[in-house]
Structures are given as C-alpha cells and as structure tokens.
C-alpha cells in the first residue's frame, strides 16, 4: 500500500471502530509491529496493519486473550516457523470456533423458526407470548397410532 493509501490513526478509528488509545496500546505491547510514521510523527497504518487489526477484532469476538492473539498473529505471519505450542494453541482455538459456530447455527435455526411462526400473525406474536407463560411444563403432545 503506497504511503498515500495508508491510513492515519483517526481514519483507522473511523474505519474499524477501534479507539486511538487501543491502537496505540496494541502497538506498545507488540500486537502490532511498529507502525510507520511520517517525519512529523503521524502514524500511517498500511494494509498489513489493517489486516492484523481485523484479525484481532475477530479474535476478540471469540474472547481470545491478547496473549493468545499475539501468538496466533505470530503463527499468521509465518505459519511454517510456528512452534509446536503455538500450532497446538491454533488447533485449540479452531476447535473453539467450530463449537461456537455450532452454537450459532442452532441459535440461527431457533430464531428462524420463531420468525417463521410469527410471520403469519398480524397482531404481534402470540407464539412468543405463549412461551413466556408459566404453564410451559404441561406436556401437550398428542399421541396416537
């Protein structure tokens, strides 16, 4: 990314929604490599920096710690040189993501079912009202055959 296409810290804040303090902190603790600067001291974030920041954001949504993210970033930068412990961490985090995806898929299906149940109703959603009642314990399945 040419310098003219690099983003200043305020532009990164606007683009990614990460605060300037956080961006400086990530650099301070080494989560980001030293950011290039203009002679005036203004930081210029290139595409590689932005890619790392997006990765950090994604990892944080999974509640990975900053230490874990730092290790994953090292793996990301150079997978072939990753230590065995980092490869193991990466596999563990992949497993966590898979489990999270399964949970999200179930939640998505549940919400889809609720939306579909309500779509035929013009007066709110009596189905969801029903679900909040206290008499949910009664077994209402009918069996025959």
């Amino acid at each position: 990314m040419p310098a003219t296409e690099c983003l200043k810290i305020g532009e990164v804040v606007d683009t990614l929604g990460i605060s300037a303090d956080t961006l400086r902190y990530y650099e301070k603790i080494g989560l980001l490599k030293k950011i290039n600067r203009l002679p005036s001291g203004v930081r210029l974030y290139n595409e590689r920096d932005l890619s790392r920041l997006r990765f950090i954001q994604r990892a944080k949504t999974m509640n990975f710690s900053l230490d874990e993210i730092a290790q994953l970033i090292r793996m990301r930068d150079n997978p072939t040189r990753a230590r065995k412990s980092v490869r193991k961490l990466t596999q563990n985090k992949l497993d966590e993501v898979e489990q999270h995806l399964a949970t999200l898929r179930t939640l998505k299906n549940e919400l889809t079912l609720l939306v579909n149940l309500c779509s035929g109703s013009e007066d709110g959603c009596p189905i969801i009202d029903d679900m909040s009642r206290d008499d949910m314990s009664s077994d209402d399945t009918d069996k025959s055959g």
Binding site: E110, L117, I127, D130, M131, T141
Partner: peptide
C-alpha cells in the same frame, strides 16, 4: 403418530 407443538418443544424442533 405424534403431533408436536413446536412452541412447547422448541429444542426438539430445532
């Protein structure tokens, strides 16, 4: 044969 009310058995339905 069984008729299942999805609201009362939402986990099973999903």
């Amino acid at each position: 044969l069984e008729f299942v009310d999805v609201v009362k058995h939402i986990d099973r339905s999903v």
